[in-house]
Every structure is written in structure tokens, then in C-alpha cells.
Design a protein around this nucleic acid. Structure first.
Length: 441
RNA sequence: GUGGCUGUAGCUCAGUUGGUUAGAGCGCCGCACUGUGACUGCGGAGGCCGUGGGUUCAAAUCCCAUCAGCCACCCCA
């Protein structure tokens, strides 16, 4: 090596790809465990699909999602090489699920209930609440031909339970049914339903006036139609009274009726959830275009301007691009990273110790290494997280280390044959004798 | 992808109308204390001022480009 200084690369965060400190990651892991446990308590089982899918699979769902897809290639790929199996990172977990269900159709039991907690990647400009790599917690149920509406009602109940357990503060779960929108707009004589939905969905951001203006300017609707659309979008109730409100607008349509019946069922089934959480909100239409019935959108009540933290809905035909069968499904996705980063930024996260260690075994100059190791092992065998301080350095440094890492207890094995084990509580400073066979943190 | 704002120590930021060896707080390392942390005191390390070019006797400071970050739009978890 020459005397020239080695080039140092300044460590930089890559925008949109978050990473955590150990103490933050511990909280994230706890969240994942809670979410898993709620999912499983409802009988959903875990699957994991590869990070990549074939590009054709990802693009098949249509929409303009393909703009956000990250394709994968080797840095020095031979440009002439055949690369039929072009692959790209999945941008959600629903498309991989569709492929998975089609692939393993014969081995799955229906209704197939699965959850999936994995990273997803989207090539968006990152900003608050928006990342290029983020963790999604998806839950879906798929059935043959018909899927009970009861699942539509179960989904928000599961989501609510999770947010309670995670202690993220109050949430608002808004529910709508695409059939209501579809039927209502068709009944009004509108043809470009998707476009209308796209604009009406901006309600919470630009308000009724803004939506009205867009409908007039962009879609050239007449004033009366705009007024009807806005009247529908303004309906928001915490029970099934939205039905009569919609009826009062005087639109007759079969699809509309279906939607109203479904949403009414869902709202009634959720009446056990405390008031102020679940709303029938006829302005929301979140999610990708493939939703056909119930749609959900969940927001943090304390941050109304912050985007949806959990959304999903019902789709009629998950696997149509892979097999000639009709498999309807319903599910939602929790944007774990989005919530996590927001609460972290707001200081609302309960950040604890910097390590999972409960007990650190200290080493005094005259203490017996072997005894320290045995002590640690005995405590571990009882399910306690124990680490040893592997240098016989100054005790001051050992305690400082434990203190800074948030280790709650420091263990002192006896230094002579007649001695006793002692354990020091770092929070109180109190140090007492302890029985290695019975002591608990 | 389109537009606006911002880049000085690990972090948060000072840095006078361009003027010598670029500063603070926090954090980090060491000592005071070789069997007890948090407090205190003292000392230390750490920066080609995002990168490249230009103007000037002189650039962290002015100009251009570029890269990166943040925000808004779009879209969405």
C-alpha cells in the first residue's frame, strides 16, 4: 500500500430505502410479531414469494403500475444474451399472490387464507410516507366462484385489532363499495366511471369545490351531474344510515342496489367496534383498478393529511390472466414502513433498549471465567437473554456498556466458594443476592 | 417522470459586505476512579465546506454545471 490515503466513500443514505438503528429495529420486529399473531389468530397462514416475478406477470394487471416497476439485470449483462426470463421486483404482494394461487391451485384448500409480510419496491419519488422499498403486511382470502361477504366484514375487524395492539393511536377506517360508485354513475348516465372515481377520490385533498371543478373542466360533466356526484361523495355515516341518504338522491340502478346491500351488511357486522372508528364513506375509492366491491382505506386519526396506512378491497377475478377460473378475493395491506416512520418522526414510538439482552454477566478481575460462562448458560437455558462481557476490563466500563445498551440487569457470579450470585438492577442501582435457578428479570 | 427549495464534523447547525491555520453544542475516545454506570471536571480524535469548472491577488462565501437530499404534483402502503 502506498502512503496515499485510501479513498473514503462517504456513507450516504439512499433516498427511499430506509434502515433502522438496533433499538428501532427491535420495535419493528415486535410489530411484525404482533401483526403475525393477529393474522394467525384468524386462521390465516403465511407464505413467502420471491422478490422478483417475471415482468409479464407484473405488467399483466394493467394500470400504469409498470412505470414504477424496477427491472433486474446484471451489471455486465451481455446485451446479446437471451433473457426471456426478464424479472423485476414486485411492487405489491397481490400480483405475486395471484401467480402463486394459479401455480399451486391443485395443492391449496379454499377458501385460501394467506398472509404475507414482505418488502415491496416502487420507483416513485420518495417523500414523507412514500418509499422505494417498504414493508407491506398483506392478508387476503381467495375462494372458488363465490366468496362470502362475511370476509369483507372480517377484514376491517382484523385491521382494527392490529392497530389496537400496535398502539398507533386512533385510526379511522373508511369503507365504500365500488358497486355503489359504479351503479350510481351509470345510473346518472356517465360512461367514464373510472375517471370520475379517480377525481372524486381526491376529495379529502382538494375538497368538494376542487373535485367539482375537475369534473366540470376535465370531464365536461354538466352542473347537475357534478352536483349529484358531490352529493354522493359527501355521504359519510358511522352506521347503515348511508343507505337512505343514497336513496334520497333518486338514482335507480341494479349495481347500486347490490353495492348498498353489501356495504350495509359490512357496516352492521362491524357494529361491535367502538364508535368513531369505522365509517361508510362514499367518497373513497382507494387502491388499484382491479377492486370491484368493498374498498377500505385507513388513516391515522391524528394525522388526517397523512396518506392511507392500510387499504384494500374485494376483487372479482384474481387469476384471470393465469387460468380459466373465477376466483374472487378480498384483502388489505398494511403499510408498516409508512406508519413506522411517521410515528418515529413524531416521537410516538416506544423506543426501548438498544439490544434484546436482559442480563449481562460481568467479569471481575478475580472472578472465574468458566463460572461466568456457566452462569450465562444456565440463565439462557431458562429462556433469559444473556450476554457476557468478554473483557476483564474496568468494571466501570462494563457497567457503562450495560447502561448504554439498555441492559436492565448486570449479574455478578460469586468470586469465592462461599460467595453468592448477585444481580444489580441498572434502573434503581440496587444490588441483591440472587438464586440462579429461580431469579426472573 | 414534471416543478420548487437545500448541500459546512457521526448528528443539529454558526460562519460577518469574498480576507490568514473553519467554529459551537451533542455524540465518540481517554484521564480523574484498576469491585460499581447515569452527574461533574480536564484532555483528545474527527472537515479538500457534496463534486467539477469559472471569476478574483484571495472563494465555505460570487457564477455555471453536475450529483445528492427535502417538498409539491403524479401515483399509492
Amino acid at each position: 500500500m502506498s502512503e496515499e490515503k485510501q479513498k473514503i466513500f462517504k456513507p450516504r443514505p439512499v433516498s427511499g430505502y430506509p434502515e433502522w438503528l438496533p433499538e428501532e429495529r427491535l420495535v419493528e420486529l415486535r410489530w411484525i410479531d404482533e401483526i403475525r399473531s393477529v393474522f394467525e389468530s384468524y386462521g390465516f397462514c403465511s407464505i413467502e414469494t420471491p422478490s422478483v416475478e417475471e415482468v409479464d406477470v407484473l405488467v399483466a394487471k394493467g394500470g400504469d403500475a409498470d412505470k414504477e416497476i424496477y427491472a433486474l439485470k446484471r451489471l455486465h449483462e451481455d446485451p446479446d444474451a437471451r433473457s426471456d426470463a426478464r424479472v423485476a421486483l414486485h411492487y405489491d404482494l397481490t400480483v405475486p399472490l395471484a401467480r402463486y394461487v394459479a401455480q399451486h391451485y391443485g395443492d391449496l384448500v379454499f377458501p385460501f387464507k394467506r398472509y404475507q409480510i414482505q418488502k415491496a419496491w416502487r420507483g416513485e419519488r420518495p417523500q414523507e410516507g412514500r418509499f422505494r422499498e417498504f414493508l407491506q403486511c398483506d392478508i387476503d382470502v381467495i375462494d372458488n366462484d363465490n366468496l362470502s361477504i362475511e370476509f369483507d366484514a372480517e377484514m376491517p375487524a382484523i385491521a382494527y385489532e392490529i392497530f389496537q395492539r400496535l398502539n398507533v393511536g386512533n385510526v379511522t377506517i373508511n369503507i365504500n363499495n365500488r358497486k355503489i360508485l359504479q351503479g350510481f354513475y351509470s345510473g346518472l348516465g356517465l360512461s367514464n366511471v373510472i375517471e370520475v372515481i379517480r377525481i372524486v377520490d381526491k376529495m379529502d385533498k382538494i375538497g368538494p369545490d376542487g373535485v367539482g371543478k375537475l369534473l366540470l373542466d376535465e370531464l365536461r360533466l354538466d352542473g347537475e351531474m357534478v352536483a349529484k356526484c358531490l352529493s354522493l361523495a359527501k355521504i359519510r355515516t358511522n352506521d347503515s344510515s348511508f343507505v337512505s341518504a343514497v336513496r334520497a338522491l333518486g338514482i335507480e340502478n341494479e349495481t347500486l342496489d347490490e353495492g348498498l346491500t353489501e356495504l350495509e351488511f359490512v357496516m352492521n357486522a362491524l357494529s361491535h367496534i367502538p364508535p368513531g372508528v369505522v365509517f361508510a364513506d362514499l367518497s373513497i375509492a382507494r387502491g388499484f383498478d382491479y377492486y370491484t366491491g368493498t374498498v377500505y382505506e385507513t388513516k391515522l386519526a391524528d394525522y388526517p393529511d397523512f396518506p392511507s396506512i392500510c387499504s384494500g378491497g374485494r376483487y372479482d377475478n384474481l387469476v384471470s390472466s393465469y387460468m380459466n377460473k373465477r376466483l374472487p378475493g378480498v384483502g388489505f395491506s398494511i403499510g408498516l414502513t409508512r406508519i413506522f416512520v411517521k410515528l418515529l418522526k413524531e416521537g410516538k414510538l416506544d423506543i426501548g433498549a438498544k439490544s434484546p439482552t436482559a442480563v449481562m454477566v460481568a467479569q471481575l478481575p478475580e472472578s472465574d471465567r468458566a463460572l461466568a460462562a456457566t452462569t450465562a448458560q444456565q440463565l439462557r437455558a431458562r429462556g433469559i437473554n444473556v450476554e457476557m462481557y468478554h473483557e476483564q476490563g474496568k468494571l466501570k466500563n462494563q457497567l457503562r456498556y450495560a447502561e448504554r445498551k439498555g441492559i436492565a440487569f448486570v449479574w455478578f457470579p460469586p468470586v469465592d466458594d462461599n460467595g453468592m450470585h448477585e444481580v444489580k438492577n441498572m434502573a434503581t442501582g440496587e444490588q441483591v443476592t440472587a438464586d440462579i435457578a429461580t431469579w426472573r428479570p
